[in-house]
Nucleic acid binder design. Structure first.
Lengths: 146, 146
DNA sequence: GGCGATTAAATTGTATGCAATCAATTAAAT
DNA sequence: ATTTAATTGATTGCATACAATTTAATCGCC
């Protein structure tokens, strides 16, 4: 590829990923509105529905987000009554996030979101899994450089 | 996949794309800092280096961004002396974006960024092109739903 | 020509993201 | 015990993103 072509937007893998991420988030918007969550709040709840009582640090590792993003987001979810934020007695540097009953119950309402989204986007399960695997590989490669 | 598994974060294609986009942007950060640009400002300049004198609407279509994002971003680039914003005489609703000489010249400094980034990320050109093609396909599928 | 519908930007308000820095606490070394 | 370093969150400042609304200009249709 010549020097001019590499600067063409449509040739850039990075831009494709970046634009795709935003378009997908927009697709989630109406579905998540029914739960009263934004996309970032939703993926935070996904982790907590898998594993309750985790630290902010752990959430950050799973979500690839830092405390500058998570602290206000978790305070918001706390104010919505979905979780609690309590300092760890054993190590006061850590904050333990715990779902409230309301937060746990919200999972039921979220169960059908993945399927509804896939239907909407018209993507087959197989090609999605293949693509997910490749992108995850790239994600880990890229993250290792930071 | 059972109902529990579909809600697992690591099974979600959408999250992989979302996290990957942010990690890639972070990888760009030190390279773009040399040019004094953010990632969004950089991709805006990419379009303008391809095609000068375009409308805000056109930029939005290429970048998948709306005027709410572009207007302040373009004002910033204007204040940096890289471009001008002028109403179209033929249709006063539109604003024409034109590179200044300084804006055009910046392209030279940007030429080697794609290669440096790929080296840094350790991704081969072939697998990148394959992945880019698949993600672009998904991007267009998803965007068609909006 | 006139007027409702449409279009293009700009504005407003909310929610991220993240770099950089700070503060508090804990762990390690001497 | 004291100093030093590392860890964990919180804070601050800046730059997006985008939904929703507003404003101004143009278009379509009669």
């Amino acid at each position: 590829m010549n020097t001019d072509a590499v600067l063409k937007l449509d040739n850039q893998l990075c831009f494709a990923v970046y634009a795709c991420a935003r378009e997908i988030t927009k697709l989630y918007h109406p579905l998540l509105k029914e739960l009263g969550l934004t996309y970032t709040q939703y993926i935070t709840m996904l982790v907590l529905w898998e594993e309750d009582e985790v630290t902010v640090k752990y959430l950050g590792q799973r979500l690839y987000l830092d405390s500058g993003t998570l602290t206000p987001l978790l305070k918001k979810l706390e104010s919505m009554g979905l979780l609690t934020r309590v300092r760890d007695k054993k190590d006061e540097r850590s904050v333990i996030i715990t779902l409230t009953e309301q937060g746990s119950l919200l999972k039921e309402k979220a169960i059908d979101i993945p399927e509804r989204l896939f239907c909407q986007a018209g993507i087959s399960t197989n090609e999605a899994e293949e693509l997910r695997s490749q992108i995850t590989e790239m994600l880990q490669k890229v993250q290792a450089q930071q």
